[in-house]
Write a protein that binds this DNA or RNA. Structure first.
Lengths: 315, 315
DNA sequence: AGGGCACACGATCACGTTACCAAGCGGGGC
DNA sequence: GCCCCGCTTGGTAACGTGATCGTGTGCCCT
């Protein structure tokens, strides 16, 4: 008990004894065992479980950074996992997180609406914040991006530039975010009395496939004059394809791109670019703040949904 | 005990009983408590502690992804922390990791050579792999990047292009990696009988300060004709500055950049660019493999150091 | 019938920690 | 001198789990 007291502040332990205890601890390499501590105390573990769909995407790096910042301020650590958009991997992670007694979860649900969160097993047992995507049937705090509004604004900007034939790059069957952006895209076309040519819908998910799709599209007959790209990965591919096209066909009008998500250096490329951007780090921080508010009991019992603003910039 | 047996495979439990146990578990939302399990078993926790210096840098996102991949293959999870190059934050993280009984550590030591790893407290108690930077006095598995060789090759390429006045962008006092790259840079100059003008050493650490430095340098008298940039952050700043410079001074020779680390889309910018690149994801995966080899007892007792190759590309 | 054996299941304890309680000691007020 | 109080210190139990062992049951072989 004297050791325990010493290690946790030393209240009611003679200073001289504390010195001896600490010296012995140093010499033996003793460190309090958090696992044991947690079993005894049923005290929070100080861990937050975070699951993202693609850790390698700089977007989620910034997102994780935002969470880490806020977590550190609150004396918590983050346990991070990568779902690769795979629901079964998501389930593994959630089970593991639950077993490790994390205090709360911040999850970017895996694609397809097949997220296992819908089953509500984990959900009910601990605070959860969903990020960037909602899941049907799950009532929890959620931080979304204004996908529809952003897509409307970006698409409208394209139309105002005279584009009436716009292709869409994104996996609307697999990724809910892409679906909502498609919604905004479509309603902006509608609002201006333009239809969408279904043959210009390219279901791509990464930079390479987007590059192929755009190159093919520009090489076909009656090519679009602009591309709507749903995320930073597809934008990189589209930019490369358009850049190649410009090089190979000097003098021709350069196709425009509207990109959801910013891409570093894209503003220097001299490709007509409309960026619908938001700050993933702020999004992560917001999600973390909501989680900690709930943990502290400062949140209303009703789940809250916050939508992060999307700004449109032209390059 | 019947519950315990059921939850861990169900050996020697009647199927009918197993069904009842699982039903009850589902209904109660019961999940085995990992903390308790760990105390009882002194069994590994399945956790790997990872500390990086800047989670927001896409470089470390890829690095973490490489670790996560290998960790998942080995049934482990990663606990990730951001040191922000701050040794005291590094200490906090390491103490916390140790207390949580992580099985091993993969650490990018915080800058300044002040990494607390030098004190050897944590080091001795569990397997450790250092990544990208070594720490004086610490004998452990290490995965480095061929900083010196890469810098020599990149610098030599610049010289072969006719550049003799090259500025250096990087924080050589704060970041060991920058120091080694500076070493290679210098020895390449030496080898060709060129000296380095100390006034062209810019101690910058992020994109903004690099942009300022390059802009100032190009605006001064007797400006350099090329810049050696130590990492992807400083390269982004340098590219922007050079790009602005080209726009404002059309017709003038465009300054060249040699960049350690690749930057997405930089190849499209029409700025003479030499990239000394390596794959951070492979680096992370390598570090993780070394750690798991050691955990499995398959590693020689002598610490190993692996150097990841650096390739030079021209754009 | 008796012995042996495989299987099913629960009682007990230990893992490292801390809450709680009890005991010892010294000082101050009466 | 006595009592009470506060500080210090250690004994004990309990957190949720699983290893070990003992007990009970049913089956097969002789």
């Amino acid at each position: 008990m004297t050791v325990s007291r010493t290690m946790s502040g030393g209240r009611n332990v003679r200073p001289e004894v504390q010195v001896r205890v600490r010296a012995a601890a140093d010499q033996l390499g003793y460190r309090p065992n958090q696992s044991a501590r947690n079993t005894r105390l049923r005290r929070p573990t100080g861990l937050i479980g975070v699951a993202v769909t693609n850790l390698g995407n700089p977007y989620y790096g910034q997102f994780a950074l935002g969470i880490e910042d806020v977590a550190a301020q609150n004396g918590r650590h983050i346990l991070i996992g990568n779902t690769r958009e795979d629901p079964s991997r998501e389930r593994e992670l959630l089970d593991d997180f639950a077993g490790r007694q994390v205090e709360g979860l911040i999850i970017v649900p895996a694609g397809n609406g097949l997220s296992v969160l819908g089953e509500g097993q984990v959900t009910s047992s601990m605070p959860l914040v969903l990020a960037t995507r909602a899941v049907q049937g799950v009532r929890s705090d959620t931080v979304l991006v204004d996908d529809v509004g952003g897509a409307v604004a970006g698409t409208t900007a394209l139309i105002d530039d005279g584009h009436s034939r716009v292709a869409f790059l994104g996996d609307i069957s697999g990724i809910p975010t892409a679906r909502r952006r498609f919604e905004g895209f479509n309603s902006a076309l509608d609002a201006r009395g333009l239809g969408f040519d279904e043959s210009l819908l390219y279901s791509v998910r990464d930079a390479d496939s987007a590059l192929q799709a755009v190159a093919g599209s520009l090489g076909g007959h009656n090519p679009p004059t602009a591309f709507f790209s749903t995320n930073n990965r597809t934008t990189v591919g589209a930019l490369r394809a358009v850049w190649n096209h410009r090089r190979n066909h000097p003098g021709l009008e350069v196709p425009a791109i509207a990109s959801f998500d910013d891409v570093e250096l894209a503003d220097l490329l001299d490709v007509p670019l409309t960026v619908m951007s938001h700050d993933p780090r702020a999004l992560g921080a917001q999600a973390a703040r909501m989680l900690f508010e709930r943990l502290a009991g400062d949140a209303p019992s009703e789940p809250r949904t916050i939508s992060m603003p999307v700004t449109v910039q032209r390059y």
